[in-house]
Design a protein around this nucleic acid. Sequence first.
DNA 1: GAGTAGCGTTAGAGCGCTCTAACGACGAGA
DNA 2: TCTCGTCGTTAGAGCGCTCTAACGCTACTC
Lengths: 339, 339
Amino acid sequence: MESVKREPTMDDVALAAGVSRALVSLVMRESPKVSDERRARVMAAAATLGYRPNAWARGLASRRLKTIGVLLNELHNPFYAEIMDGIDAGAAEAGYRVVLGTAGSRPGGEQTALDTFLELRADGAILVGPRLATTDIAKAAARMPVVVVARGVRSKTIDSITNDERHGARLVVEHLVSLGHRGITHVDGGSGAGAAARRAGYEEAMRGARLAREIRIVAGDYTDLAGLAAADSILRSRRLPTAIFAANDLAAAAMIDRFEGAGLRVPADISVVGHDNTFLAALHHISLTTVDQPRPEMGRRAMALLVERMDGMRTAAVNVRVTPSLVVRSTTGPPRAAD
Amino acid sequence: MESVKREPTMDDVALAAGVSRALVSLVMRESPKVSDERRARVMAAAATLGYRPNAWARGLASRRLKTIGVLLNELHNPFYAEIMDGIDAGAAEAGYRVVLGTAGSRPGGEQTALDTFLELRADGAILVGPRLATTDIAKAAARMPVVVVARGVRSKTIDSITNDERHGARLVVEHLVSLGHRGITHVDGGSGAGAAARRAGYEEAMRGARLAREIRIVAGDYTDLAGLAAADSILRSRRLPTAIFAANDLAAAAMIDRFEGAGLRVPADISVVGHDNTFLAALHHISLTTVDQPRPEMGRRAMALLVERMDGMRTAAVNVRVTPSLVVRSTTGPPRAAD
DNA sequence: GAGTAGCGTTAGAGCGCTCTAACGACGAGA
DNA sequence: TCTCGTCGTTAGAGCGCTCTAACGCTACTC
């Protein structure tokens, strides 16, 4: 047993294999200009020593680690997890390693995670549904390529992947109008990523349907708790809307709970539409009419944009807009007879 | 504009502040032995240059980065997300930075993530619900402290936090028996973390209730898809059980869906118990009777164990067992009249 | 005023790797 | 035989930081 437990280094491997350190380095980087015989010797020595390249030293010397940082705003929201699937697949394909960061529940958590990426000198970062101010994101983007997903950013240095909120909202409103609804209330996502755009999309769609006077917005958030609160507030209102367009599935599911708890039937008494088409919406028990966004594709495209930037193939900012679709299930139906 | 865009280094800061690099280093590490005047000068210089310490160089020189790796087996399962909350809080408190890894959907994804932690020379790792073989985990544990959460491991080098599955299963079985059930089927978690222990706990509890002959186990997994499949298989069986103990909430919710789709009423025709008490179970709409594990506490304690190890305060492996409790909601009731 | 203790500061080696430039060996062409 | 080019290999500088040991300075003691 050695006195001090030390990780084997490249020099150790070189010594064991009877070659120079530089040669070991070439082998580790899979260089083609190493003879088969030497390569085998080095690999064998590395294996017996249990050698594993030190990423710190490697990064320091090469100034590049093939690592990207992904900031997930919320671990609990399945929507983000499914975007992550796409990022993950894209990264594996492009040969990048991914480290994740989350905001946790700490204030300033997003900034902390972003700082971590910067200190770890990640080659780039993907921010999924960040709540950070655009200026803070821009500050980070000055140091490394950054792609924002599921939220628009007005910037010349930041790429983004957004959902066509106008289109989504129009699908929802048209669907409800075709069923005979007029009083369609939107429960928004508060300061959540993309919430402002969704809200604007709703208003525009309502105006487009000549229902400008019916526009009603209730403050909410992307959480179940916010859904409960919004439902309460709606239940207390003088005139009940006949349909609700919720900011996301989670809030929608919580609202349905509350409505049914209050004796209302969905959709007989009130229709509810969610957003994101997470697995929650698909559960028969809930069977929520909702707006689908192609999440894995969004993740994949985010990764593709990032790779373009990191390889220096592009410098102008790009905004990719994906097209959502409506998934009609059983929480929407004709409005109750007028009162 | 400079010809080459280069991150400012400590030397740049030292030059700007008119001090030595070593002094800047001390300031960055918040050493107490720096005069206030110099500290202010350095901070100011760092701020104007936008200096940010290079974690690679720092790690290389200090052999420690105050960073731990957390491997989350599944991003989609809210159970893991809630454990993560506890880890996160604990890490922030202890001054550690967290990087996450996931298996993604790739085969060998867990091993890849673990390798990443090793190459990044993380100070330690927490594996949440890993499916990796114990020997693979042990191999990593030889290089850095490792704590496994939500799964038992038989090893002298690996700490673990597990749920007292026997106790949990006993609570479930006793609850159902007290309602009058005898035919209680377990839909297990397949090769998922802790599934074997949960299965064993069920069998033991059944024997304890003198229902050894009623033991029935249906193969499952921790996913909604597995729940659907298990429900189908149960619906096809000759004699329907009067109660189901599912491996987790997700599978339980999916099963209820399927049962109701087939015309059964829950709990009038069949009782269903979940596991984990995720937010899913709490939704009124589902209102699932389930077993609660103190998830954030599990995360916190995992972090605490890891810190003990990393600080070298302990070398013997520890297994912390947390005690679950039963949350009775509305998916359990007396069995239907005997047929 | 010489000696000394204490404190803030600094020089310089070294962490483990990559990368450039140069090296020797060898075969081809003159 | 000599030069040249090619190819596999290597020496050595350097990446940005930490850390030890030593430094100069002030304050205090006798």
